[in-house]
């Protein structure tokens, strides 16, 4: 995969990256160190689990919920529930556990419950808007946004990138997030787990309880749908985005 190396950058310790399938019951050849550590001493190893997995769980939750505060709560709640569940498991069962798909499944369920509750609370009214909706700026056409209008994100790690690049990337991300949010759940969930959560395809299949072949097909169709949606947004925009951007820049100067 061309961009695999790039994704690895986010998380260099990716034990299951290229031998997916080791989690599906037959574990003997490839024991997952985290599961073994949890089985041996839950309290000591759980801290490592939290630090290793929380970014992934938070990222997944962010893409499944409208509000970042909700995503934070769901990620926290998922880990608290995971700990309580593990505390009741036999060590042998923990050792066999595919930790990452299991955690992802908890987040998916909690996010679903929360969305359902929010929807029930607002019944009759308009559906909860996704935060990224309405600013679906796709990848290009970035100059329409003067740099500095976006509040700098303190957790952004690209300190070497120019402010303009940062703004471009954030705009682009917001656009993709909005397109993703509009996909049907059967495509959105696998895409979020596979690419945002960086799980392997077998792990996604395990997390969602779907056959691996189904997940593969859904990932492929999901990507194609996403691309189609992206191209549709581009087409719906001004056919000469550069001209509009120039106008915006002029307005900025005269102000």
């Amino acid at each position: 995969m061309v961009f695999h190396g790039l994704m690895e950058e986010h998380r260099p310790d990716h034990p299951l990256a290229d031998h997916g399938g080791s989690h599906d019951g037959s574990h003997d050849g490839c024991p997952e160190p985290l599961a073994a550590a949890l089985a041996r001493n839950l309290d000591a190893a759980f801290e490592r689990l939290v630090r290793d997995e929380i970014d992934r769980l938070f990222s997944i939750a962010c893409r499944l919920l409208a509000d970042e505060r909700d995503a934070e709560e769901v990620a926290q709640d998922a880990l608290v529930r995971a700990y309580r569940a593990l505390a009741g498991f036999e060590p042998s069962r923990i050792e066999q556990l595919a930790v990452r798909p299991w955690l992802a499944a908890i987040v998916v369920n909690l996010a679903r419950n929360r969305r359902r509750r929010t929807r029930t609370a607002r019944r009759g009214g308009t559906p909860a808007p996704h935060p990224d909706q309405g600013r679906a700026t796709p990848l290009p056409a970035p100059r329409a946004v003067p740099p500095g209008t976006t509040t700098p994100d303190p957790v952004d790690d690209d300190s070497v990138a120019s402010p303009e690049t940062v703004v471009l990337r954030r705009e682009a991300s917001a656009g993709w997030a909005a397109l993703l949010a509009e996909l049907p759940a059967r495509y959105r969930l696998p895409l979020v787990l596979r690419y945002v959560g960086d799980l392997s395809t077998p792990e996604v299949a395990a997390a969602l309880g779907r056959p691996e072949g189904t997940v593969k097909a859904q990932l492929h169709r999901g990507l194609r749908r996403l691309r189609a949606a992206y191209l549709a947004t581009l087409a719906a925009q001004d056919p000469a985005p550069a001209g509009r951007a120039a106008t915006a820049a002029t307005n900025e100067e005269t102000r």
Partner: peptide, 18 residues
């Protein structure tokens, strides 16, 4: 965009937790 590009765009939606 190629599908690879879409994958990359999705991977960039990864967010560090607070």
């Amino acid at each position: 965009p190629r599908l690879d590009d879409v994958e990359t765009a999705l991977a960039e939606l990864h967010r560090p937790a607070p």
